[in-house]
Simulated scan of single mutants.
Amino acid sequence: MKKILFAIGVLALGQAAAQTSYVSNNASSKTATITVNAGEGGGNGGLNFNGADHGKKGFVIPAGWTVKMVFKNVGTMPHSAAVTKGKTPPTSITVKDAAFAKAYTSKLVEGLAGGSAAETVTFKVGKAGTYNLVCGVPGHGLGGQYLGFVVSDSAKIASFK
């Protein structure tokens, strides 16, 4: 019985350690580091960020903060990411659609290959509003590969919910 309880405890600790935090905050420098894993798990056929799709989850960032977005394609197909304006993702994306200067990954349309090295892009968010974090590869955003991205006047730290 003790061995079974010990094994259950070890499994529970392993699962807790496996959970990922997608946000770290530095309130003194007003900087949020967000992790965006494209194709994480099999959700939505791989068209997801951090396992979420169709805007079911998203980031909340305090207005005026700097964001360091660490983008990693952990899936098998090419992916990219851009923060775009509006409550719904655009049907196609170019760098001109970015809500904030430099708020997009390289190879926006063709995407970064699965398993490629992480890419970090840094940008400053502007005024409060509702935006989206969308994959720029044609058809991926329409297929549901987007998260919410809210810039908030009332948030004290960044979060992922």
Rank of each mutant, 00 (worst) to 15 (best):
F71G: 11
K102V: 03
G41F: 13
G115M: 10
T33G: 07
T33R: 09
D97A: 01
T76S: 08
A98Y: 04
K68A: 09
G115E: 05
F49S: 04
S29K: 13
V67M: 01
W65D: 02
M77H: 13
F59A: 08
G55W: 05
G41N: 09
V95S: 15
V83S: 04
P62V: 02
L47F: 15
I34E: 00
T76F: 08
S92E: 12
A32M: 06
K57Y: 07
V67S: 02
A63H: 02
T66H: 05
S80N: 08
G75W: 07
G58C: 03
H54R: 15
K85Q: 12
T35K: 10
W65R: 10
F100L: 11
V95L: 11
V67E: 08
T31I: 14
A103K: 00
D53V: 14
M69S: 08
K56Y: 02
T94R: 10
A32F: 14
V36K: 03
V83M: 00
K87S: 15
I34S: 04
A81W: 05
K87T: 13
N44C: 07
A99H: 07
I93F: 09
G111R: 04
G86I: 05
G75H: 11
I34H: 12
P62S: 05
D53G: 03
L112K: 07
S106C: 03
A52E: 01
V95F: 06
T66N: 10
S92R: 05
Y104H: 10
A82S: 08
H54I: 04
F49M: 12
S80V: 11
V83F: 13
G64Y: 06
A63G: 11
K57N: 06
M69W: 01
D97N: 08
V36M: 14
P78L: 01
M69C: 11
T76H: 00
D53L: 12
G41T: 06
D53Q: 15
G43F: 13
A32E: 02
I34F: 06
N37G: 05
D53W: 10
P89E: 14
A82E: 10
K87I: 03
A32L: 04
D97T: 11
F71L: 01
I34G: 06
M77L: 11
L108H: 03
G111Y: 00
W65A: 07
K85C: 03
E40D: 05
A81H: 00
H79K: 14
T66A: 03
T76Q: 12
V36N: 14
L112T: 03
N73D: 01
G39F: 12
T33P: 14
T84F: 11
K57W: 06
K56I: 05
A113S: 09
T94K: 12
T105P: 04
Y104R: 04
G43H: 14
